[in-house]
Write a protein that binds this DNA or RNA. Sequence first.
DNA 1: CGGCCTATTGACGCTACTCAACATGAGTGG
DNA 2: CCACTCATGTTGAGTAGCGTCAATAGGCCG
Lengths: 251, 251
Amino acid sequence: MSKVINIKSIKVSCSQCSLSQLCLPRNLDHEDFEALSSIVKRERPLLKGEPLFELGQPFKSLFAIRTGSVKVFLPTNEGDEQIVGFHMPGELLGFDGMGHDSHSCSAVALESTSICELPYNRLQDIARELPSLTEHFMTLMSNEIADEHAMMLMLAKKSAEARMATFLLSLSARFSKRGFSARQFNLTMSRHDIANYLGLAVETVSRIMTHMQDAGIINVDRRFVSIENMDGLRGLAGFTSTSPVCAEHHE
Amino acid sequence: MSKVINIKSIKVSCSQCSLSQLCLPRNLDHEDFEALSSIVKRERPLLKGEPLFELGQPFKSLFAIRTGSVKVFLPTNEGDEQIVGFHMPGELLGFDGMGHDSHSCSAVALESTSICELPYNRLQDIARELPSLTEHFMTLMSNEIADEHAMMLMLAKKSAEARMATFLLSLSARFSKRGFSARQFNLTMSRHDIANYLGLAVETVSRIMTHMQDAGIINVDRRFVSIENMDGLRGLAGFTSTSPVCAEHHE
DNA sequence: CGGCCTATTGACGCTACTCAACATGAGTGG
DNA sequence: CCACTCATGTTGAGTAGCGTCAATAGGCCG
């Protein structure tokens, strides 16, 4: 009996989910929450390496991350991949397929990851009664566009060291926003993934992390990162002390 | 009197505009066109270098390009800019501000450019009666996301030569789509802008264009480009100059 | 313990940047 | 019409940053 209750407790309403402020509009009333909760599908968690969606698959849903993390990537014509984003709890994925038949990129879990699936046709039904939902998706999409602009700037102009510093600051800010420490966290992605995302070689990422450690900016032990000198890191990233930590929204 | 008629003739309806198939949904009837036409503002054309909108300005409208072209860019903290896109007739701009108070990037005209301004609050009114309009904007935004993913791949992985080739092919395809030659066109942007966009130095862009000309792939005279060997250009766009396939078989 | 995968470190080379000189064209004024 | 200037583009020489290749170390799991 207690088991049944446990299973039910997993299927919490969106109104009780601490992440809803990240993936849903803020002005929802109880009824709105119920309508949204009723269409959310929660399958078993994905294991590390399992795809959330893949390039070319029909677009049917948006996906919100509850726990875990995900990488989004394109195939390259040399047979490997280009990672275009990492996503953590509270973030919505799948906008690439919005208004299209199929997804234009792939997403796989970086660790055990639980997901809320939001079937798009059901979302459209709700959005008809709830214009702020459409508005909210627009906001999230334009955030994604702004993030990608910032990423293009980084890839086009910044040095390897500045890219790495910016990446760590971005993770720090996102962990912090979710109530975790801004100074200490575990990377959920491999060095290979980091290098791929930042347009660098794995060896370069490795070297830069040791340089930063030698300079007393960070401490690294495998995937555990501890930021020892936040201002120093901001300096490496190319930000003045008054400029924003990073341009990333990732709500 | 004839002058008045001329001025009026500039204010054509969207239904008569050959570009409407690019910036508006396809299933519109006469009434829809009239509703949209009635809210479109057409100011005097922008001169070269004049801003269409600027970072931080309140977001009030989307903008469609009628004639001319525009570059969109972010400021860098070194004081210069990073160009994140070029836009030509039939394309809609300003999605970066959607769902926000203000624009997250700037746009300036590269040449004399005439614009249709679409006030966003009026658009929302129309969209309430015309769901396919919202759907269309979603499609355009997700296209923009997909384009930026492709750009990130390019900046992270491709050689200077491949970037330049990809850029020329992209222009070619876009001119072609608008009824112009896919093989001959004028660049509306300077070498400086091209280099900035592609994350290269101006000198590199210049050298690569001469190399391509020497190889018989293109002909360049100032801003006029003529593609002499489309397949050759596609080859350059797909493989790095050091990749085995190119080095072995295409010396 | 042994195999495998991920990460680190070093040596070397290449791509593309920087610096600098020069060429060309557009615009201006005499 | 030419001379002048300024902006834009081209070309060359030298170099730095980062990638490639290769060897080694360390953690994880059967």
